[in-house]
């Protein structure tokens, strides 16, 4: 029997640590089974209220958090920045306090400003705060979905149940992250998640799109994508974040694609076991060629499906313990 104490908030992958990632993935596999049922809904979190506060555009993260909450029988409050009292001059702090006063047990927040979820977590008194992506800081649930997807593929190849692999299958796994790393919150969460689990992470990007302090990250940096891509087990592509000004860091989209996109020519250099991931939204023809995105090695659609299971796991971990005296028990 093991006991795991869930964090109060999920602001960063660091809040979970290796143990927490293992628990979240194990729970996510149990919820993936729920999703395959005739009626894919369980009463686990009946009566809990989950509010989604999205100050930035989103399709999959918002929908998957809301569908995850509904499959756990939570009530969902949807906040839309564009039509809210923010327009009348209400501050973020007051908005959050209003939502908490309405009984929200968890607040999922996305904001273009890095650090917003941390700030919000200092204002709430009882609600749990979940980071749904903040600026170019972190996007922890996406990194969890990526890990879950990669583990499922490894398990299928070995013909075993994914959960039986634990997190040991990440030990020594070679992960190559390609693209706009400087502006990508997914990259930061991926680096934390993969390295925490013992994987060897390499970054590859134009010099202008590498983070300024990359030497202090626990990763390698590859200059030549063609060489790096031949020697990796997982390649994670990232979108060029033009809404954060990435366009000005590269001479042109065409040059970016030539140098750092997964073109058909480059995809032919991959080992056939290499798993291609992309957190979405994909821009076909820029960071990934359209045919490559639909290749069998590409697990983009599975990442989306797994996103719901992972978010169910995170909501369950944080909310099922909210009134408990001790931690969560297994066994």
């Amino acid at each position: 029997m093991t006991e795991f104490r869930a964090p109060r908030h999920l602001l960063s992958i660091d809040d979970l640590g290796a143990n927490g990632i293992r628990e979240a993935m194990s729970l996510a596999e149990a919820f993936a089974e729920v999703e395959r049922r005739v009626i894919p809904k369980v009463p686990a979190l009946r009566g809990k209220v989950v509010a989604t506060l999205f100050f930035e555009d989103s399709t999959r993260t918002r929908l998957s958090f809301e569908s995850a909450a509904k499959r756990l029988s939570c009530d969902v409050l949807t906040f839309n920045a564009g039509t809210s009292s923010l327009k009348k001059g209400e501050s973020l702090r007051d908005t959050v306090e209003v939502i908490e006063a309405m009984g929200a047990d968890a607040v999922v927040i996305r904001h273009s400003c890095s650090g917003t979820p941390v700030q919000v977590s200092r204002w709430v008194s009882r609600a749990r705060v979940i980071n749904g992506g903040d600026g170019s800081h972190e996007h922890p649930t996406q990194a969890l979905a990526d890990c879950l997807t990669v583990r499922q593929v490894i398990a299928e190849r070995q013909g075993v149940e994914p959960d039986s692999l634990g997190v040991e299958c990440f030990n020594g796994l070679r992960v190559l992250i390609v693209g706009d790393i400087a502006h990508s919150r997914v990259a930061r969460s991926q680096v934390l998640a993969y390295t925490t689990l013992g994987a060897r992470v390499t970054l590859c990007a134009p010099g202008t799109l590498l983070p300024g302090n990359v030497e202090s990250w626990p990763v390698g940096v590859a200059g030549d994508l063609d060489a790096a891509i031949k020697e990796t087990d997982v390649v994670s592509l990232l979108r060029l974040q033009r809404e954060r000004g990435s366009g000005t860091y590269v001479p042109s989209l065409r040059e970016y694609t030539q140098g750092w996109g997964l073109t058909a020519r480059r995809a032919s250099l991959l080992k056939k076991e290499t798993i291609i991931t992309h957190p979405g939204p994909m821009v076909r023809g820029v960071e990934i060629a359209s045919d490559v995105a639909d290749m069998e090695q590409s697990v983009v659609k599975r990442q989306v499906t797994n996103g719901v299971a992972v978010r169910m796991a995170v909501l369950f971990l944080l909310l099922a313990t909210s009134d408990a005296r001790g931690g969560i028990q297994r066994g």
């Binding site: 149990a30 089974e33 099922a320 313990t321 009134d323 408990a324 969560i328």
Partner: peptide, 17 residues
């Protein structure tokens, strides 16, 4: 595990499939 009536009081994770 997901159907228990003591979730929140004494949470027990699913231990098996």
């Amino acid at each position: 595990a997901f159907y228990r009536d003591d979730i929140g009081l004494r949470p027990v994770l699913p231990e098996a499939t």
